[in-house]
Design a protein around this nucleic acid. Structure first.
Lengths: 209, 209
DNA sequence: GACAGAGTTGACCGATCAGTCAACAAAGTT
DNA sequence: AACTTTGTTGACTGATCGGTCAACTCTGTC
């Protein structure tokens, strides 16, 4: 069999990445308490004790998983430009969020699970990065309202609406698949769903003549 | 101290109800695996063994909790009349769903938690009652489209949008409160959120001139 | 007031959990 | 080749879990 030699400390990076990937999948599927280190170890094809060599506790491993998710989320958040064109900004942001739901549903599920249970482990994320980002977008949207570029609505409820609708396709994927003859959404269906989400929201924001 | 006498088999009804109420709260807060019979017992101020006298297993108790939630959900679903007036039907349905999120957030959380994890215990609810109800509303909405009463959109995505946005206020209540200076939404805020959700969706469905 | 059925409870059990540890193997350094 | 550092692993531990059980009390009936 061909030997793939791992040099130096590449071993650490490779193993940590493998464990984090398995942990995200297991945590998404079973929740924090419902996931055991044994399940994660088996998924990653690594002895359980070895996981504790890289991550000192289950909670620290979980936090690392959530941090990774939050990073992806923040990168997508950048696509919500605070430029002068709400149509482009919102279209870009909603499309990006739908893509994340399609490609990385596990991350969204872990996040949802955590928030549903009162965010016992990652509460600081909410009060720092998320709050800052939210407030800055609310300010930007208020400016759009003043400039007459969108209707006079409370920006907060619009943001929640965008989060809810886009993340729903990841968090409730099982329900959606069940209602889709037990099949995952096709590419066409994803596109149609994404377009519908944007069209509906934009129709509600577009200034009336 | 005043003695409240419980007659006959009222004891059973009273205790079952008390246990179910505590179970819903605990399951919502910690998930199925994260909740222990001990926690539920303590919350209900009843010895653990006594709970097993009324509910033979944790899973059976959990199913009873979900059944109760589903009943509430189905009653609200009736407000989505398939009458000839989409504006009234949707306004009534969205208002009802927002009220459920406000008054019974725990039930919504248990449901969300279950679906996120692939609905291992209540999968039959999805393939029976929910699927039937969904398909009947899709048919009704298609008729509205044919009659030119709403725009030509895929009814499925609209339903998901309504579910997502309304349930978001229950499932993500912790995040919403955190972003609201750690305060629960006021009555006014709930009304405003509900009106915004309806206005946006209706603006996207209302036939263009 | 005697009996039966319903409800209550502390003590207990096997299984599973996160985390530890000591012995070992491989890689890197001199 | 000697030695250090890093990585690997099976066996173990104390805690907690869902569930059982036998002894008990209370309630309703005759």
């Amino acid at each position: 069999m061909p030997e793939i030699r791992l040099k130096k400390t590449e071993i650490r990076a490779e193993n940590e990445s493998r464990i984090l990937k398995s942990a995200e999948r297991i945590f998404a599927r079973h929740g924090f308490r419902g996931s055991s280190m044994r399940m994660i170890a088996d998924d990653a094809s690594i002895p359980k004790a070895n996981i504790h060599y890289y991550f000192s506790s289950k909670e620290k491993l979980y936090r690392r998983v959530v941090e990774r998710i939050f990073t992806v989320w923040l990168e997508a958040a950048a696509s919500f430009e605070t430029s002068n064109d709400p149509h482009a900004a919102l279209h870009s942001y909603i499309s990006e969020k739908m893509e994340i739901s399609r490609l990385y549903p596990d991350g969204s599920k872990v996040w949802a699970n955590e928030v549903i249970h009162g965010a016992p482990i990652i509460h600081d994320f909410l009060t720092s990065a998320l709050e800052d980002w939210t407030n800055s977008r609310i300010v930007a949207m208020r400016r759009w309202i003043e400039e007459g570029k969108i209707r006079d609505v409370e920006p907060r409820w619009i943001l929640y609406m965008i989060w809810a609708t886009t993340q729903h396709y990841a968090d409730f994927a099982h329900q959606i698949e069940t209602l889709n003859d037990d099949k995952a959404l096709s590419i066409n269906q994803w596109q149609q769903a994404r377009d519908t989400v944007f069209d509906i929201i934009w129709a509600g924001l577009e200034p009336k003549d």
